[in-house]
Amino acid sequence: MSDVQATKEIDARGSFCPGPMMELIRVVRSSEVGDVVAVLSNDQGSRRDIPTWVEKAKHELVGIETLDGYDRIVVKKLH
């Protein structure tokens, strides 16, 4: 997973819910279709919210990995 190359990486560590999620939405919107966006977050809400959002918004959840005290959530923009 850590070898998944992201087009853009958002370091939202230290941000609180809903910060990482909102930042991700902003970046995904301004990205090109096919771009892969990784968000780093240590917020508990985002760990659940982001996958739910990705599914609803019909993008692709490439994966979630738990690293040293934070999550790296990787999303691919599909449309």
Binding site: P18, M21, M22, I25, D49, K56
Partner: peptide, 11 residues
């Protein structure tokens, strides 16, 4: 502010 953000997330 947070509820409004949650609603935005849900489109």
């Amino acid at each position: 502010a947070i509820m409004a953000s949650g609603a935005v997330m849900n489109d």
